[in-house]
Structure formats: structure tokens, C-alpha cells
Design a protein around this nucleic acid. Structure first.
Lengths: 194, 194
DNA sequence: TTTAAATGAATGAATATTTATTCATAAATT
DNA sequence: AATTTATGAATAAATATTCATTCATTTAAA
């Protein structure tokens, strides 16, 4: 046996990647910067990831998967009304943003980047979940049956994430988003889908 | 006199820049790609722009400026109600998206990119416009006086642009956005701000 | 209980590759 | 012919990736 893998290094690389990309932007982020911020040698990354793209991809897909898992369990828990489902989902997004701003903004940036797209598996899952939510909402009278899948997809999965994270170009100095926004955002979505 | 500048070349460079970035993403777009797609020599760009960043910057700021000019004149035209103002603004965004998808998506991508941010001048203009709109809306009863500037800014300037352009990861094959969405989007915004 | 050999982790300087930028030259226009 | 536009191969600069080497830990023979 030889020495053990320092698991903390991997965690540090992940955190440094997200932080650097959020601070400097994708284009300006280099492997050298990430390694430096993670306090890890330049070549270490390549022991774990095939390269820069691979590293970012994995972080992104991890997050996408966990998001869908979360939504899946929320659907299972709320079979008669979409309001608690949406409210919980938004509450989690705001909590995540407040607790892990780098991870939250990292995901938000990739969501709007051409180079990162969902796998076919995720697309299927997503379509499936959206339809399940639609059925629940239509049955309970919370969603108009004319609401399109695109409208549903955007307003359930994207709208709140966008609203919460759109702070970079902030014109006003105040703290923009707090946990108090959960109710208002939930109400907005329910109004739109009605 | 010597030969004339081929103005068309500059237009081609602009179009190729937007198209390439929309298709390949910022990180993967190179000067060589842009020049090739524009049918222009590699070095030609540098006769007009100081470099890649300068080129992209100029395109972005042109668009931001024209957007604010448009909104400014809409505010002047609608001093008693915000509904027609918002409706016109959204109609223009959808028309733009349908007629010039590359330009529309290019702008949308930069809007969500850390490396591009509004100048102080634009920030001031923006703050000023948002407050003017708020005053009109509060006076007419269309906007609750509790609505924050952040809410106003996001829902007037970002929400519709995002909704319209969020098509890349499309799960369903259909054409997502059409001119028929103007009314629904307007109604959504007015409901949220009320 | 030492000691040393084996193993895999980790490093970072060297290399390869990619990509922006320059500039000597050619082409077009007056 | 004079002048400016335009080219694209050459160059410079930046950055990703490799890999020979070092280091830490474990195992087991002496």
C-alpha cells in the first residue's frame, strides 16, 4: 500500500473551480488559477479529470442530477397540489444561494452557456417530471390546461434560479435576495401558470 | 484616393462574431473562426478593433445602448400607464428574437456572463429609468408601492429576454416562442408587479 | 522492533498546443 | 504612380497537458 488519496484535495479543486469561474468568468479561468486557488499542484487535476472541460462538465452534471433528484422526491411528496412543491423548491434554491453562493452562481452561469447542455437522459427525466407536475396541477385546478410544457419548464425550473442569481450587474447596493422572497416568488409562479 | 473600405466586411465580422459565439460558446470561439465565417482575412479584424475582447465589447455595448434608448423613448410616450410600455418592449424583444436570432441570443448570453458588465453611465441611466417607470406605475395603480427596484429591474428588463431566449436545451422539439406570447408575458409581468 | 522495498500519490518544470496579434507584402482604386 | 485596403504567413504569448521525479505510507522480511 502507498499513501491515501487526500479527499480534501478533490473538494478543494471543486470549490476553487466554481469560485474562480464565478469571479473571473469561464473564458479567463485557467487550470493554473484553479490549481493555485485549490492549493494543489498543476498536474494533480489530471490524475482525477481528463482535463479542464471534463472537470467543469462533471461539476455541472452533478448539480443537474441532484436538482432533478430533489424535484423528483418533491413530486412524490406532493401528489395533490403543486403549491407546496413549488414553495419547497424555491426555498431550497434561495437557501442554496445564501449558503453556497459560488456553487449557486456557477450553476446559474452554466445554465446560460452554449457549451453545456443536458444529456438525453436528463431531457427525458425533465420532460417526464414536468408532465407529472402538470397533471397534478391541472387536476387540482392550479394549472390551466392550456399551459405549455415550455412555459412550465421555464417557470418551474429556470425563473426562480434566474431571479435569485441575477445580482452581478447590481445597480443598487442593497442585498437583493433574502429568504423572505420565497412567498412572493411562489405566488408569482402560481399566478403565471393559472 | 485609394480603394474604399468594404463596409460589408465589418457587418460580416459582426454577424460572424455573434453567430459563432452563439453556436460554439464564448470559450471555444477563436479569431480564426470568426474571420473564416466572415470570409475575411485573419488580420483584418485588427484594422478595426483593438482585439477580440474589444470587438465583443463593442457589440455588447451597442446593443445595451440601443435597448436603453428604446426604453427611454417608450417611457416618454407612456406617461400615464405602464401596460402599453411593457407590451411594446416585449413585442420588440420577440420580434428581434424571431428576425435576428443570433444577435438576440448573443446579447442574452453576455447578459449572463461575469466578464461583461454595465458601465457606470448605463447603471445610472438604468436606475433612473426604472424609477420613472415605477412612478408612472404607482400613480396609475399598476405597481404596488412595495415593489423593490430589484424586482422591477429584473421583471422589466430581464424576465422576458430570458424567457424568450431560453431555448437551447430544448426538451421538446416544437418552436417555443412566437409573437403570440406578447400578451401572456405582458400579463405575467403586470401581475407580478401589482 | 527495525529496516528496506514496494506502491501509489503528488509535484512542477518541460513540452505541446492553441490562439491572439503583427507586419511585410500584395491588391485595388484613384 | 501614389495611396490606402486587405491578406495571411510568421511570431509571440498564453495555457493545457505530460511525465520524470520525489514523497509519504504500508507491508513484511530480518
Amino acid at each position: 500500500m502507498a499513501r491515501k488519496i487526500d479527499e480534501d484535495k478533490i473538494a478543494r479543486i471543486k470549490e476553487a473551480t466554481m469560485q474562480t469561474i464565478v469571479e473571473k468568468g469561464m473564458e479567463s479561468t485557467t487550470i493554473a488559477m484553479i490549481a493555485k486557488n485549490a492549493n494543489v499542484s498543476g498536474g494533480y487535476l489530471y490524475r482525477i479529470y481528463a482535463g479542464k472541460q471534463d472537470l467543469i462538465n462533471e461539476l455541472y452534471h452533478d448539480k443537474v442530477n441532484s436538482l432533478y433528484k430533489e424535484l423528483e422526491s418533491l413530486v412524490l411528496l406532493n401528489q395533490t397540489s403543486i403549491k407546496p412543491l413549488i414553495k419547497s423548491f424555491i426555498k431550497n434554491r434561495i437557501t442554496y444561494f445564501l449558503n453556497e453562493p459560488n456553487a449557486s452562481k456557477f450553476f446559474y452561469q452554466l445554465l446560460h452557456n452554449e457549451n453545456f447542455f443536458a444529456s438525453d437522459e436528463i431531457k427525458h427525466k425533465s420532460a417526464d417530471l414536468i408532465l407529472k407536475i402538470k397533471n397534478i396541477g391541472v387536476a387540482s385546478g392550479e394549472i390551466s390546461k392550456d399551459t405549455t410544457v415550455y412555459q412550465l419548464h421555464y417557470h418551474i425550473l429556470v425563473y426562480a434560479v434566474d431571479y435569485i442569481n441575477f445580482t452581478r450587474k447590481n445597480i443598487f447596493e442593497e442585498q437583493e435576495v433574502t429568504i423572505n422572497d420565497v412567498d412572493k416568488l411562489t405566488e408569482n409562479i402560481l399566478n403565471i401558470l393559472k
